[in-house]
Each structure stands twice: as structure tokens, then as C-alpha cells.
């Protein structure tokens, strides 16, 4: 399968990339890892007139802790997240997720920024971002703006990124107190999208009372979603078995999955309940 013809630019700086975006407008697409975009182009689901390859722009790939935040450059590869010590020690939720995203070769190409900018509810990082209450830095020729993840996803493949802008960084507030997190998705085979996936971030105080709860769901809603009622059920609780069960039940009720080859609606809701319960327990075990 061969994509339709297109113009190709590989700018060396962000400013050059912004200038190209301003010139070509919505006929241009940004090429990051390319493992969502190129398959869509090969199937002719996408036929951009211009590709702007940002792989040669230095300074967009990093994982660093700074000013009370974990900052991840948009072009950081999934395999970099998978093998980062900072991530493995403090944010095992990313290690959980990275291991389940596609396969090793795809993770050598795929980027965290592309995973989010694609705006697909089937992708795994959005749920993790909801759990961690991340923000996304979106840059253009006029400067940068920071958008909370709750305001980032507009709808199917559409996000807050405007046609002259590029997602450049993900910032995550460093969790305080005793914290634990976990992610799991049920997949039919390696490389498949989630039948259902759940991301959990918890913090507790010295008395074991939950002071922070973040819960994101993968591929069980038209857009990536936060399980707000589940978070409320945990917040201020001692995370007893009945609190956990209530939170899991709310998540299964509040999501809005569609039936497909991965399962019918009832099955997916049941899986959301099971995985939510298990991931809360896993996050607790990591406190």
C-alpha cells in the first residue's frame, strides 16, 4: 500500500516548522513517530498535501524533573519512557503503559506527544495523563500555552492544538505524600488497542486517608475520559474494599463504550469494573 503524493519538509528548528505550518495551514500534517499517521496514509484515510517531519528538530526529547513537575519532551519515544530510571522509580504507571503500547519496534518510533496529539480515545497515554492531571504545552510562532488535559480532547481525532501549532511538552505535577500508580489494559493480542484500559494515581496521608485520586479510562468512551465519580468515591476515604468496589462500579457506569470486535457494551463495562478494582489495589500496593 502506497500513500498518495505529498510534499515533504524536515525542518531543523521549531521556528521553521511553525513557518511551514503557517504557509500550508490545514493541508499540512506533523510527522512525529508516524505509526498512526503513515498507516492512515497508506490506507488513504489521510491524504495530507504536506508532511512536516519534526524528527530532526533537536531539544524535543527529554525526561526531567524540574520546578515540582515531571517534564517530558513531546518527541520522547515510548522506548525511552520504557527504559528511563526516573520513570521506573517514581512513575511505574508509564512503565506499565509503555510495555503494553504496540510492540518494541513501534515503541522505538512512537512518541508520547504523537500519542496525545493524535486525539484517539484508543491510545493509552491519555488515560495516564488524566490520572496524573497532566498539562500539555502547545507552541506556535507567537509563543507557548499550557492546556490542562481535561480541556485538551475535543472529539474524535480533534484536540486543542490549532493548525499552526505543535505539541511540544507534557508537564505532570510531582505527586506529594505517599503515592502509588498503575495502568493496565486488556488487549486481545500484542499490538491491539485496548478492549478497556484503566490508569490510577493515588496519594494517602499518614492516617491512610486518600488525599488524591486520579482515574483515566482508555477506549471506552468517544473521547479519552476521566472517571470523576470514581475519584470522588476514593477521595477522603480510607480506601477500604467497599470504597474500591464503589469506585470501580462508578467507572463502569460512567463510561460509554461501543460494541465492536473486542466485545459488546456489557462486557466492556464489566471489564472496566474489574480492571479499575485491580489497578486501585495495585496502586495501593505501590504506595
Amino acid at each position: 500500500m502506497i500513500p498518495a503524493s505529498f510534499d515533504y519538509f524536515a525542518p531543523a528548528t521549531l521556528d521553521e516548522a511553525f513557518a511551514l505550518l503557517e504557509k500550508h495551514g490545514d493541508e499540512a500534517k506533523i510527522l512525529a513517530g508516524g505509526h498512526s499517521l503513515i498507516p492512515m496514509m497508506k490506507l488513504r484515510f489521510a491524504q495530507p498535501e504536506t508532511l512536516i517531519d519534526i524528527n530532526n528538530i533537536p531539544g524535543l526529547s527529554y525526561i526531567k524533573e524540574e520546578d515540582g513537575h515531571l517534564k517530558i519532551g513531546a518527541m520522547t519515544r515510548e522506548s525511552d519512557l520504557e527504559h528511563s530510571d526516573v520513570i521506573a522509580n517514581k512513575y511505574p504507571i508509564f512503565t506499565d503503559a509503555s510495555k503494553l503500547i504496540a510492540d518494541p519496534q513501534v515503541r522505538n518510533m512512537g512518541t508520547i506527544g504523537g500519542n496525545l496529539a493524535h486525539g484517539d480515545a484508543a491510545n493509552d497515554h491519555p488515560a495516564v495523563m488524566f490520572a496524573l492531571r497532566a498539562s500539555v504545552v502547545i507552541s506556535g510562532s507567537g509563543g507557548s500555552r499550557t492546556v490542562p488535559i481535561d480541556e485538551f480532547f475535543y472529539g474524535f481525532y480533534t484536540t486543542a492544538i490549532q493548525e499552526t501549532e505543535i505539541l511540544t511538552e507534557i508537564t505532570i505535577p510531582t505527586p506529594t505524600g505517599k503515592t502509588g500508580n498503575a495502568y493496565h489494559k486488556l488487549e486481545r493480542k500484542v499490538g491491539d488497542y485496548a478492549t478497556a484500559g484503566v490508569a490510577i494515581q493515588l496519594s494517602v496521608d499518614d492516617d491512610g486517608v486518600c488525599t488524591y485520586a486520579g482515574i483515566g479510562l482508555t477506549n471506552v468512551n468517544p473521547t479519552p475520559m476521566r472517571a470523576a465519580r470514581s475519584e470522588e468515591a476514593l477521595l477522603g476515604s480510607k480506601l477500604t474494599e467497599s470504597d474500591i468496589k464503589a469506585a470501580a462500579k462508578f467507572a463502569s457506569e460512567d463510561c460509554n463504550p461501543s460494541a465492536d470486535l473486542r466485545g459488546d457494551v456489557d462486557y466492556k463495562r464489566a471489564m472496566v469494573e474489574v480492571i479499575t478494582r485491580r489497578m486501585i489495589n495495585k496502586a495501593i500496593s505501590r504506595l
Binding site: K42, Q105, V106, N108
Partner: peptide, 23 residues
């Protein structure tokens, strides 16, 4: 030809990648 099977795997700068999904 859809980046699933890995038969087209090569190394680019030492990293294994699927050459059917790279321009």
C-alpha cells in the same frame, strides 16, 4: 504491510524498526 508482523524489521541507527511504516 501494516506494522504488525515484523517481517520488514531493520535497524535504523541501531534501533529495530518496521520499514513498511517509515518513509
Amino acid at each position: 504491510d501494516t506494522s504488525n508482523c515484523g517481517a520488514c524489521t531493520i535497524l535504523v541507527n541501531g534501533k529495530s524498526v518496521k520499514s513498511c511504516t517509515i518513509l
